[in-house]
Design a protein around this nucleic acid. Structure first.
Lengths: 156, 156
DNA sequence: GCTCTCGATGAGATAATATAACACGACGCC
DNA sequence: GGCGTCGTGTTATATTATCTCATCGAGAGC
């Protein structure tokens, strides 16, 4: 598989992930409030893309009080804009970003069997998509590349 | 721009488009009922991706009676499965397919200014995405490549 | 300390998108 | 006629997303 581009970022995990998210937010001029921390932790605690409502439930549990969806949406939108979370369009769901510090157009492999979603980067491909858009006179702002299919565990 | 792959299909328009859709459906072993024709015509009458509810409204108008969303969804799902329509995931909306007879993974350029969505094909890119998925042990079934941005009319 | 403003959150309502459950009629087949 | 399948109608409900306005606290300027 020598031809496949690799990714050698540190993949922040657990509390380190939270720290990386906080740093990225602060670096972007945003506050890191308790609520935002709670939303991020909840988001990161899923092993699959989570809907805003899933997250709202988990945040509510975490904080011991009811947190409304719109609070969660506001924060998720902010996270996405700061590259701390990513939205999986074809599932209307969100993922924590393991390396917010580095900017890629990412490619999601979304398993229709188990829902697991893996995230790969391939700048050659994503630049190709951007170039293809430019060639059509289009100013690419946010490429969305997601592949629906079956992960290795869920193939027949 | 000689390096950009082209597309030389006949782009069916108007009634010819409807005919192509009907043929594709029939070829796929599906019926072409009045309701399906009405949904397809309504879909094709939009110059932008249309939501199922937009379509339901237009079908209702066309038929002079109330047609419920789920009827439209059923038919749209069928259309998508037969490649007669396509779903734009990042807008929760649908487009008629101008050449149902030929199968591509398509790339949508979705303008966040005016909503216009153009459809390009680039088998080199889409195969690249499929290969990238395979390399990760993933069985690609439906690649989704959509680019959010600004069309040439809506750039600053 | 006081007040002003601003950003963050709370609360409730509502909109927009999508699916479920079940009934009914048309049609083909036996 | 009796049965099965397919397409649609009808109603209800689930899920996702946004809007509006109120409140609260931190910091700036005085």
């Amino acid at each position: 598989m020598a031809s496949v581009p690799h990714h050698d970022h540190v993949n922040h995990a657990g509390r380190a992930l939270v720290g990386a998210a906080r740093d990225a937010m602060v670096a972007g001029g945003e506050q890191w409030t308790d609520m935002r921390a709670a939303v991020f932790e909840s988001l990161a605690s899923f092993d699959q893309p989570a809907s805003a409502y899933d997250i709202a439930d988990r945040v509510s549990q975490l904080l011991g009080r009811r947190v409304a969806a719109n609070t969660v949406y506001r924060i998720l939108d902010l996270f996405v804009s700061k590259n701390v979370a990513m939205r999986v369009e074809s599932r209307n769901a969100y993922l924590a970003n393991a390396h917010p510090d580095c900017l890629h157009d990412c490619i999601f492999l979304v398993c229709d069997g188990c829902g697991a979603t893996t995230h790969v980067d391939d700048d050659v491909l994503s630049n190709g998509v951007r170039e293809r858009a430019s060639a059509a006179g289009f100013k690419a702002e946010r490429p969305v590349i997601e592949v629906r299919g079956r992960c290795s565990d869920c193939r027949d």
